[in-house]
Design a protein around this nucleic acid. Sequence first.
DNA 1: AAATGACCAGATTAGTCATTTGGTCAACCT
DNA 2: AGGTTGACCAAATGACTAATCTGGTCATTT
Lengths: 190, 190
Amino acid sequence: MIDRRQNIIEAASKSFTLFGYKATTMEQVAKIANVGKGTIYTFFETKEELFKEIVKDLIKQIREVAVAAIHEDRPFHENLHSALYGILDFRKNHQLAIKITQEVKEMNTPAVREASQMLESAVLKFVKKELEKAIEKGEIKPCNTEITAFLMIRMYVSLVFDWEREHQPLSKEEIAHVLENVLINGLRNH
Amino acid sequence: MIDRRQNIIEAASKSFTLFGYKATTMEQVAKIANVGKGTIYTFFETKEELFKEIVKDLIKQIREVAVAAIHEDRPFHENLHSALYGILDFRKNHQLAIKITQEVKEMNTPAVREASQMLESAVLKFVKKELEKAIEKGEIKPCNTEITAFLMIRMYVSLVFDWEREHQPLSKEEIAHVLENVLINGLRNH
DNA sequence: AAATGACCAGATTAGTCATTTGGTCAACCT
DNA sequence: AGGTTGACCAAATGACTAATCTGGTCATTT
């Protein structure tokens, strides 16, 4: 029990992942972390702050996944595809991310909704930056990067999460193909 | 009180619009329609069937709006824009459509969810047909019309409904502009 | 023959109260 | 003395129940 703070974070993370934000009690976290409940409050002002700390870390991990998917020498659409797909794949497999989305849908806890928005906004910023880089390189034409990033993410989320609600799920390759044809090349018949 | 059936439909429509599906009682409908409760059941098997009848009519109206927006001599993207925008504008202003979306979000009543899906699927079919027509005419290149229609609708809904959750709402012209640049022409720098 | 509303079983709701929980702080180690 | 703790509190929660409501039926009325 050397680093009590880290200990608490790990315990809380476990509990949030397992039971969600609302169903996690501070006493539960204290027990898992092997500390008294009061100790938690010497490191974190509130339950919410503790949660935010963990979400911040989650966002950091996501950014790492995205950055790792980018190779400066590859064409823009390939990079964007692997980055976005990586992000969504991470989110699809990361238990805490799943719990957050679940909880925001079925109980709409304010703190959880806020966390979810922060997550979204981090991804938006990332895509926007990539768009700007691509425009500067001349790979794509100038456009409103805010709206375009927003749309691209929506499309990706739709393809990865929503499409399979009523259809066969799409493979990574199919999604890449759709992205390139619809978004990059455009539908127009040249 | 000549056409009792129509009378009931109108009363139910009023009530569904005002209070939503769940909060509408058959007795309420009977009272508004000036008939006995039993009479409703001589025309409609269940509350759900009555609701579906009304939704069917709503879909018909939407189709009319969309069809009216199409002019065969205009380019594909203009038609699609005015049709989709017309649909969403209708939906945004039609009280019953609003109630349905609200209710499916906050109570998720099965009958209402189903109605919402039927609505969506009707729009999807419409856009898909328009895409096929445009491909045949050679206006756009061949593509998976199902996925593409799905994506276009998602994009439109995102732009019209979701974007303004955290930004200035977009004008009709801005949306048309984004549609043409992102979807039709593509982002690639030629 | 068509329309009706009293009626019923099952669902929903309002109200209650005991339990739980986030957060505090005086006592307690070390 | 400074960090740690768990008993403690007000507020929130949720389990439970009684009362009400509602979709649907059907014997009676018109």
